[in-house]
């Protein structure tokens, strides 16, 4: 049986190896054919004319993720502070499952909610079609909340009580004790949560497709439509062939590299916060 267990443990290694091999083997030739420079920095994506530049999509992903961070990170960290330091135990027992539920709601449902509520609201206030970078950022901002909250909460909970008590003994108010001693002490854990949230946001597909407008052009502003790398793949994979298909796989390779970098910084931060 020892061998069987060992084999099962190796399946995940095998899976990662296969994913890398298949993505890179199918994507890199396309990058070569299009030209790495033209592919990564090309501003036009016109599969009909064999023009494959994914800069608009890379920027789209980055902008939308940045928007989600601007909205989700402060709210998430403050909500985590609320749950660890500002709310009675009984309320916390209610809120914890609520955060889990927020994490468990399928992304299509988020997308649908965004499409039916957030998009029309933006249309009413700012005009235009409503499907925009702003809508995508708001939806993603909500979606990364549970990730940020739960990681921040556990690192806030791991701060020794003596920090807080020391600050109070020196005359600090409850709020100042929390924000000036407890929160800074949990810094690297909170940062790890933020990075994990960024990974979620940049990889999210369905919710973004439904609210972002998906125009394959350079992002034109908060209220204009954008297309992310993930959306690009889902929207066109269904009918793509030959170089077009390979260009889409190459888009996934770029996304994969982004994710690997994010993962790496997450695990470095996690190690650092654990070793403390």
């Amino acid at each position: 049986m020892h061998g069987v267990f060992l084999f099962c443990a190796c399946v995940s290694i095998l899976a990662v190896a296969l994913i890398c091999v298949f993505l890179f083997a199918n994507g890199i030739p396309a990058m070569k054919e299009i030209g790495l420079f033209d592919f990564l920095l090309g501003k036009r994506w016109k599969p009909g004319n064999d023009i494959y530049g994914i800069l608009p999509m890379i920027l789209g992903s980055i902008y939308v993720t940045a928007g989600a961070v601007v909205i989700g990170v402060p709210i998430g960290i403050l909500a985590a502070v609320f749950m660890t330091r500002f709310c009675p135990d009984r309320l916390r027992r209610l809120l914890k499952p609520a955060v889990d539920l927020l994490a468990g709601i399928p992304s299509v449902v988020y997308g649908f909610f965004g499409l039916m509520v957030i998009v029309p609201t933006i249309r009413r206030i700012f005009g235009g079609s409503g499907t925009s970078m702003l809508a995508a950022s708001i939806v993603l901002g909500i979606m990364i909340l549970p990730t940020i909250i739960s990681v921040s909460e556990s690192s806030l909970g791991a701060v020794p009580e003596s920090y807080y008590e020391g600050a109070r003994a020196l005359g600090a108010s409850h709020e100042r004790a929390v924000f000036l001693t407890v929160l800074p002490a949990a810094k690297s854990g909170v940062l790890a949560g933020v990075i994990l949230g960024i990974g979620r946001a940049i990889g999210e597909t369905m919710a973004v497709i439904m609210v972002a407008g998906n125009q394959a052009a350079m992002p034109g502003g908060l209220l204009k439509g954008v297309r992310t790398m993930t959306a690009n793949i889902v929207l066109e994979m269904g009918y793509a062939a030959d170089l077009h298909r390979e260009a889409l796989i190459a888009t996934a390779v770029v996304l994969f590299v982004f994710i690997l970098i994010i993962n790496l910084s997450f695990s470095i931060l996690k190690r650092r916060s654990e070793s403390k």
């Binding site: 994913i19 298949f22 993505l23 940049i202 990889g203 889409l248 796989i249 994710i259």
Partner: peptide
């Protein structure tokens, strides 16, 4: 755990 689901889908 960090790989986005669309990448899984493509794989």
């Amino acid at each position: 755990q960090g790989i986005p689901s669309i990448v899984y889908g493509l794989f």
